[in-house]
Simulated scan of single mutants.
Amino acid sequence: MYTSGTFPLPQDLENDRIKLVPYIPSFHSELFAELSKKYPETYKYIPWGHSEVQAAFDSETFRREHKWLLFAILDKTRPSDNSTASDGALAGTIAFIDCAPRNLSVELGAVLIFPPFQRTHVASNAVGLMLQYALNKPSEGGLGLRRVVWLANYLNEGSIRLAKRFQFQQEGLLRWHMVLPPNLDGYLAGNGKVLREEDPKPGCAGRDTALFTLTWDDWEGGAKENAAGVMSRTM
């Protein structure tokens, strides 16, 4: 059964390379904050600053109200950073956002991969495991959803490239979709749209968002096998 307006947590969401575990603030928050401060460039295209992200991740109320299922990504090929992540090193996060059991749809987001784990097997395997859980039939251990959404800053070539690698289809471009936070450490420079005079938020650039989806018929029509192939690659 679906729970708390979201979806049930899977028993096991892992393969031989990574493991996805529910993000538990008492276990993960301290190390996540430490890595966020060490690698602020992780938030280059994120519409929140890292302090806002941390507050949201740590807030059960936020996660419940926004219908999030948030996971910590553990890289099983690297030793644990601390005793709270004994299955591997904390590599980042990934989530189901805006879970909609009634419409059998979900957004795949909060894909934050820290730089030491970027351009490795981590992101592709995390996304692949989430897609398998979302789109596989219930008899295969999945939720049997009809639609998975992927939203990306239109300038974030890495995110768009990853979506296309899994055969997400672009449905459109949401113009002026978000207000970005004030420039933080220079990482937001050039990552938003220029504002007109007298804009109510002059220090916050705008963002166009590319909208991609992967549906059950895409999945059954070859995207499932493609995903397995993407996950099996070493890089």
Rank of each mutant, 00 (worst) to 15 (best):
N125R: 12
G221T: 05
Q54N: 06
G172I: 01
A123E: 08
T84Y: 14
E198K: 12
E14H: 11
Q54Y: 02
E197N: 09
G192D: 00
P8Q: 03
K76R: 11
G142P: 03
L211P: 02
P8H: 04
G5D: 09
L9I: 08
N103I: 00
A95W: 07
L104H: 13
V111Q: 11
R196L: 05
W216Y: 12
D98S: 14
A163Y: 04
S83L: 11
E41H: 00
C99R: 04
A227P: 00
P182A: 03
E41Y: 01
L155M: 03
G141Q: 08
E140S: 10
K224W: 12
D58H: 02
N191K: 01
M235A: 13
K201H: 03
R161P: 04
K37L: 14
L131E: 06
R196D: 04
T3D: 07
V179Y: 03
H66D: 06
F7N: 11
L13R: 03
G88S: 12
R161T: 15
N103W: 02
V179I: 14
Q54T: 09
S51I: 07
E220D: 15
N15K: 08
D12P: 05
E14R: 14
G206L: 01
Q11Y: 13
D199Y: 09
R17N: 12
I97Y: 01
F62H: 10
I24D: 14
V179W: 04
F117P: 13
P115V: 10
K137S: 15
G229H: 06
N153P: 05
P25A: 11
A189V: 00
L69K: 02
E34F: 05
A85Y: 03
G192I: 00
L162T: 15
L9P: 00
L70I: 07
D81H: 14
L211S: 11
M178Q: 12
F168N: 01
T120D: 04
G109P: 14
A152Y: 11
E225Q: 11
T42S: 14
E41S: 04
P79W: 09
P138Q: 12
G92R: 07
R175V: 07
L195Q: 13
F166K: 00
L20D: 02
A33Y: 03
A100H: 10
W68D: 07
R119V: 07
I46K: 13
W176Q: 07
K44Y: 02
S232N: 11
S124Y: 04
M231F: 09
A91Q: 10
N153D: 08
P200Q: 00
A152E: 13
S59V: 09
W48L: 13
P79N: 13
G49F: 10
L184S: 00
S83G: 10
F71T: 02
T6V: 12
R233E: 15
G158V: 02
S4I: 06
F27V: 06
E140M: 07
G221S: 09
G203M: 00
T215A: 01
K164Q: 12
L135N: 05
